[in-house]
């Protein structure tokens, strides 16, 4: 189990990019923090998630 925005998911072993796609953030404008550290955008495909990880995803939508 790992948590994304406070909810638990079975996504151990997936990359950040795969996890984002599975929970509906595929192709969205986001920022991703993994265990309190930013995941650089060019590392979504190479960063693998492990048991107990805490992921926070912020989605950016237009308007301001």
């Amino acid at each position: 189990m790992l948590t994304i925005n406070g909810k638990e998911y079975e996504l151990n072993g997936k990359t950040v990019a795969e996890a984002l796609a599975e929970i509906g953030y595929g192709g969205q404008r986001v920022a991703v923090e993994l265990n309190e550290s930013i995941v650089p955008r060019d590392q979504y495909d190479s960063t693998v998630l492990y048991e107990g990880d805490h992921l926070e995803v912020v989605r950016f939508v237009g308007g301001g």
Binding site: R29, V30, A31, E33, I38, P40, R41, V58, F60, V61, G62, G63, G64
Partner: peptide, 18 residues
């Protein structure tokens, strides 16, 4: 960060955090 366009928000936030 008070931009209006989503791609610019994403750019600024990720750049600042990095």
């Amino acid at each position: 960060e008070a931009f209006d366009k989503a791609d610019q928000k994403e750019m600024l936030v990720n750049t600042v955090l990095e």
